[in-house]
């Protein structure tokens, strides 16, 4: 049980590392949003799930309740994180942020 939690939390950190690297390295706003929206959702879900397993190992009533609360945070993040991403992308699009194309060579990130 502990091993499973450790694996899940470590995987979450690895995906979060990928998302951070993508956020820092990608050339324009839209591709950064790709990294932010996807990496953020999955890494948060994995880490919260691992922590929930850790909490559950005593199996008192209060711990089961806390586990359900953590799962509710999971559901909440799973629903709202893509929604936030979509809202921010929409704002950027209507504000007129130009997507980066391969052929413009002004490499200003």
């Amino acid at each position: 049980m502990n091993i499973l939690a450790m694996i899940t939390i470590s995987l979450g950190v690895v995906f979060f590392f990928g998302a951070t690297l993508g956020l820092l390295r990608f050339p324009d706003f839209y591709s950064r949003v790709h990294a932010a929206g996807k990496g953020d959702t999955l890494s948060s879900l994995l880490m919260l799930f691992g922590l929930g397993i850790l909490v559950l190992e005593n199996a008192h009533f209060i711990d089961v309740l806390t586990f359900i609360k953590i799962m509710m945070i999971c559901v909440f993040i799973f629903v709202t994180s893509p929604t936030t991403t979509h809202a921010l992308t929409d704002a950027g699009y209507s504000a007129g942020v130009k997507p980066w194309q391969k052929d413009d060579e002004e490499t200003e990130s």
Binding site: F16, L23, F29, V33, D40, I77, L88, A91
Partner: peptide, 18 residues
């Protein structure tokens, strides 16, 4: 852009939850 900053700040907020 400002929206870039908000996206990054939102990501930090989600990680603060964790």
């Amino acid at each position: 852009t400002v929206i870039d900053r908000i996206v990054a700040a939102n990501m930090m907020g989600t990680k603060t939850t964790v």
